[in-house]
Design a protein around this nucleic acid. Structure first.
Lengths: 140, 140
DNA sequence: CCGAATCCCTTTAGATACTG
DNA sequence: CAGTATCTAAAGGGATTCGG
């Protein structure tokens, strides 16, 4: 049957577009950075525990303490994915008990700089956005 | 009872941290931009249908065509949230049937510039990341 | 033509408990 | 100390249908 062309074409277009999206680097990066804890880990490692210092290595337990709300599962998962991308490096010292520290790589540091741009934009425009939202909600 | 201090303190710390996160402008912006279609709509309005042109207004149906994979629901939802934040403006012409067009505001345009930084980073480093991933997976 | 409302499924992330 | 495993809750997103 050569019928149902409309739905068929739509489905085909969608498949192609999704393939295009999957190959799009920007989308990939956004997907990576969008994780709830990814930027927080980047910030912690890139600007110190209070987000105002210098990049420095931190231990697993230190990260867990700084990111107070995170569960061990999510911390491990986030760290592993960042390590996989080469954004952070993991170093295990053969002490007893074992000591593990994480540090931004050069690549991770450059991403941290980019993410900071987002932070700057949001801080610069947050009031404006909040105001717009209030007006929109008020206008109903 | 002043017991169960450990679990209690942990819960308290978490609550405070979550409150801190909720107030963090960067987190708010990331949450907004992280939607699957948000950046695509911004790009379409900010760089034309093929992402290589000038900012210009587009109609609902034109956006639906360009973003081939999107469902009407998500398009409406995305557009409304962007309009609420004052990032795009919506104009309805009282024709029959009604004609609606969307356009970036100044605020939306500036966000688009910031988002482009992410795009540039990801394009510049995609090969490096891919290579890192392959090495990581290979090393098992 | 534009968009709202409903239903359903998949993905994500949090709680908890346990191991080297 | 540094993780892993399992289970469950919640959110995001898609298909479909209906109204202005």
């Amino acid at each position: 049957m050569a019928t149902m062309t409309a739905a068929q074409k739509r489905a085909e277009a969608k498949t192609q577009y999704n393939a295009f999206l999957a190959a799009c680097p920007s989308q990939q990066l956004l997907a990576r950075v969008s994780g709830k804890w990814v930027t927080l880990v980047l910030s912690a490692l890139g600007s110190g525990p209070d987000c105002t210092g210098e990049p420095r290595p931190m231990r697993y337990s230190e990260l867990a303490r700084v990111l107070a709300g995170i569960s061990p599962k999510m911390l491990s998962q986030t760290l592993k994915s960042l390590e996989r991308d080469g954004l952070i490096s993991r170093t295990a010292m053969p002490t007893v008990p074992v000591t593990v520290s994480y540090e931004l790589t050069g690549l991770g540091l450059s991403l941290h700089q980019t993410v900071r741009q987002i932070k700057l934009w949001s801080e610069a425009h947050r009031d404006e956005v909040t105001e717009n939202q209030a007006r929109f909600d008020g206008a109903g």
